[in-house]
Nucleic acid binder design. Structure first.
Lengths: 158, 158
DNA sequence: ATACTGATTGTAACCATTCTTATTAAGTAA
DNA sequence: TTACTTAATAAGAATGGTTACAATCAGTAT
């Protein structure tokens, strides 16, 4: 328990640092800071999961009773264009958003949709290959692993 | 020119083989073959690109003037469930479908959306890592590289 | 032939996302 | 502070891809 709370605090601190950096980097562009934007960014950076636009909307409707869904979408696009946020599109209907733009990947559960982050180095080689094979100027890549999460494995076994 | 036509014929032959195999594997399940299904499969397997459901619908409306869009979607799902076809979901609105289910990846142009296939071996290691890190039972993975295609590089340079 | 199973059609509904317009808030310079 | 300029928000309507549903149709087996 103690260990966990320490972890929590560390994570929180790290995220707040990232949030501060994000706010700073927005200031350097011509993007205005507004209460709504701050709240959306704060939620995303303190969020362990990968929320949909609607998740964010619902999470903030207490604080901003009359915020529009369009505002959430607009600002997510602003953040995405600024490189602060990544959009993840899977087969299911709605996009998910991820504040952690550092190199990491996702493992996704086929049956419950849970998303777990993991780190893996050195896929630069793939980018280089693609660059040569296709003649593209490569910018980034995306990778996901699909499978069944521990909980669902247990559930399926009864 | 001669060389190209030989290439074309080879590709065509290969694809028809794959189509035949696909038809065969459908026969082994309890999926009925219908003219619409045959046409959709044939189009997908002879198609160099990665069409949307609507692309397929439009391409076949001459042959099947009263085919429904629903039929295209229904059958794409049937083929997907049978493992003959892969669904690709990117940021843009509509899914794309890919008949080539062998291990290959895509390079996608950020500005025009062009999709180019390329092959890369040995991402099994990533699956294994994810399995250990997250405790998942891993089934598959997906990877894409994003960048600018040669045409768009040229266009941007004026 | 009859009944059964599954496929197709056409349309309506759904839902995520974007557009439009009026209004409001933020930045700026005097 | 005040007035001005510009961008952001809200609300709701519109868009567009996808799916659900009910009715009809085709193929197959008894």
């Amino acid at each position: 328990m103690y260990y966990e709370s320490v972890m929590q605090r560390e994570v929180k601190t790290m995220e707040n640092t990232e949030l501060r950096e994000a706010l700073q980097s927005l200031k350097s562009t011509k993007v205005r800071m507004t209460p709504q934007r701050h709240a959306i960014l704060e939620f995303l950076f303190n969020c362990e999961s990968h929320p949909t636009a609607d998740d964010i909307y619902k999470a903030l409707e207490d604080k901003f009773p009359n915020m529009s869904v369009a505002t959430v979408y607009n600002n997510l696009r602003v953040f995405k264009d600024a490189g602060l946020v990544r959009e993840l599109t899977y087969g299911d209907s709605s996009s998910r958003f991820d504040s952690n733009t550092s190199d990491h990947y996702h493992v996704i559960c086929d049956s419950c949709g849970k998303i777990v982050d993991f780190h893996y180095p050195g896929l630069d080689e793939v980018e280089t290959l693609a660059e040569h094979v296709a003649g593209f100027r490569v910018r980034s890549h995306r990778m996901e692993v699909y499978g069944t999460c521990p909980d669902c494995i247990k559930a399926q076994a009864h």
